[in-house]
């Protein structure tokens, strides 16, 4: 039996805010197999982004257990967790989080800065290959300010794929895009999932992205609505 890409057990997360404490996740139990394309649907404030941050090792203030590729995140040091993020996880954000003082290719190669084993030439070649594949080869020297929203998100996807991750975590990846551009990004995720067997977990409140996933998890008030877990 293969080890799941993601497994959570009794996962809870409470955001402390002075006298007010807000429970973002409550006793979440999920399992995502390698190569799955899972979409987490839910309204705003349902805990989708918190779930993604916890799974991605960016938020360590949770209770319960989170395993990524069989490794317990709670037992890992900051350095080991950073190494895991760099080597196995790619992040795609709603707001792209591109660095505006850098060119497109410099943005794409940003993860290589923190790769102790990477070589410059190989990384630039990989970045060019990704930009070619995403239709941005001629924009490598431009800055993000010169790109459209869809192009920016494709740059962010190229950055996420630079170090050949096994897991792509996407937080509202089409949330800032118009319908046509969002559709093209969704097609891209489908292609990556189909051709590279990439494990993708995307959180969204848009049904059109959910339709591309192989499985849908519905989150409500920090809990997975088991009754509504369904294949797409």
């Amino acid at each position: 039996m293969s080890v799941p890409a993601i497994r959570t057990r009794g996962l809870s997360r409470v955001h402390e805010g002075g006298r007010d404490a807000r429970r973002a996740l409550a006793d979440v139990e999920i399992s995502v197999e390698e190569g799955e394309f899972v979409c987490v649907l839910g309204p705003s404030g349902s805990g989708k982004s918190t779930l993604l941050a916890v799974i991605g090792g960016l938020d360590r203030g949770y209770q319960g257990q989170v395993e990524l590729f069989g490794e317990d995140l709670g037992r890992m040091s900051d350095a080991a967790l950073a190494r895991l993020r760099g080597e196995r996880i790619g992040f795609v954000f709603q707001h792209f989080h591109l660095l505006h003082h850098l060119t497109v290719i410099e943005n794409v190669t940003t993860p290589a800065l923190f790769d102790p084993r990477g070589d410059d030439e190989g990384c630039v070649a990989r970045a060019k290959e990704l930009l070619e594949r995403l239709g941005l080869a001629d924009r490598a020297g431009d800055t993000p300010a010169e790109l459209s929203g869809g192009q920016r998100q494709r740059v962010a996807i190229a950055r996420a794929l630079l170090r050949k991750p096994k897991l792509l975590l996407c937080d509202e990846p089409t949330g800032n895009l118009d319908e046509a551009t969002g559709a093209r990004i969704i097609e891209l995720f489908e292609e990556l999932h189909r051709e590279e067997r990439l494990t993708i977990v995307a959180v969204t409140h848009e049904e059109r992205l959910a339709r591309a996933a192989s499985r849908i998890l519905r989150l409500r008030d920090g809990r997975v609505d088991a009754a509504n877990e369904e294949p797409a």
């Binding site: 991605g56 960016l58 900051d78 950073a82 190494r83 992040f91 940003t110 800065l113 923190f114 170090r163």
Partner: peptide, 10 residues
């Protein structure tokens, strides 16, 4: 935060 997400340690 982005650097942390792409693999930077504290």
């Amino acid at each position: 935060a982005l650097y942390r997400a792409v693999g930077a340690t504290a």
